[in-house]
Nucleic acid binder design. Structure first.
Length: 258
DNA sequence: AAAGTCGTCAACCGCAAGTTT
DNA sequence: AAAACTTGCGGTTGACGACTT
């Protein structure tokens, strides 16, 4: 009955940390539950997305390599906009990433074609394959590539660490960001998590699938995913009654305070 | 130096599918 | 068999930095 207000917009480092540690605890399923017990005022959906697209270990960040680009072309011509399917064939890449890439790519291509049509002197027989070459040039040379793929920008979700160059401070959606906290790299985060896990992870070995997401093809065949990782939590039954949930929550609260 | 435009990426939304009860 | 719930997918949007004029 209590209508909870959910936060939207860019994630802060603190939220990321929290999410990562709770996924470490409970696995990368049951997102509503995780959202709830973690105290994140985010929807489960939002948590899942953040995890899948950004926090999952093994994700590659940065520009697609020429090989990957070619593969995307190929697979897209085969499967169309089945982004998640395509993504599974590209280790470390997410559907969102590929989707974004494709969109950019297509827009660029459309513009080029428009231009080509406008100026008939240029040959218009650019196949999609040859345009992939174009595109390689574009992406490889892209100034953005060096910047975005750079380690320091790896974490630039608009969080506090970017406040400096964000001339207008309105990115700062989070009221709870650490003031004066310097940019937190993912390395730092994972280090922290590692320490956290060493201390608080119960032996229940909840595994967030440290296997990359693109392994899901195989996982899918293995039956209901929430049986993976040794936990015997069933969907819809959050691992026990509310008592247990409360217990877990309490415990977690205690641990994360450390 | 300032303003405008472009490119990229993260995140949200709505819907569909799968699973459990 | 059906309702309820969770997860996953694809489309879309908004914000921000880089580049251009």
């Amino acid at each position: 009955m209590v209508h909870q207000e959910f936060r939207k917009g860019p994630w802060t480092e603190q939220e990321d940390l929290k999410l990562v540690s709770f996924v470490g605890l409970f696995g990368d399923r049951r997102w509503d539950f995780i959202a709830k017990v973690s105290g994140l005022t985010r929807t489960g959906k939002s948590c899942r997305l953040r995890w899948v697209n950004y926090l999952h270990p093994g994700l590659k960040h940065g520009k697609l390599t020429p090989q990957e680009e070619r593969l995307v072309m190929e697979l897209h011509s085969k499967w169309g906009n089945r982004w998640s399917r395509i993504a599974r064939k590209l280790p470390g890449r997410t559907d969102n990433e590929i989707k974004n890439y494709w969109r950019t790519h297509m827009r660029k291509k459309a513009q080029e074609e428009k231009r080509a049509a406008a100026s008939p002197t240029s040959s218009s027989c650019q196949s999609s394959l040859s345009s992939s070459n174009n595109n390689n040039n574009h992406t490889v040379n892209s100034v953005h590539a060096s910047k975005k793929a750079g380690e320091e920008s790896f974490y630039d979700t608009g969080g506090p660490n970017n406040n400096e160059n964000a001339s207008n401070g309105n990115i700062n959606v989070g009221e709870d960001h650490q003031d004066g906290e310097e940019g937190y790299s993912m390395d730092d985060i994972w280090k922290d998590i590692g320490m956290l896990e060493e201390n608080i992870l119960p032996s229940t070995s909840w595994e967030y699938s440290s296997e990359p997401l693109w392994m899901m093809d195989e996982e899918e065949k293995r039956g209901p995913p929430w049986f993976r990782g040794g936990g015997e939590v069933k969907r819809g039954d959050n691992g026990g009654g509310e008592d247990e949930e409360q217990k877990i929550e309490d415990e977690v609260n205690r641990e994360t305070e450390l």
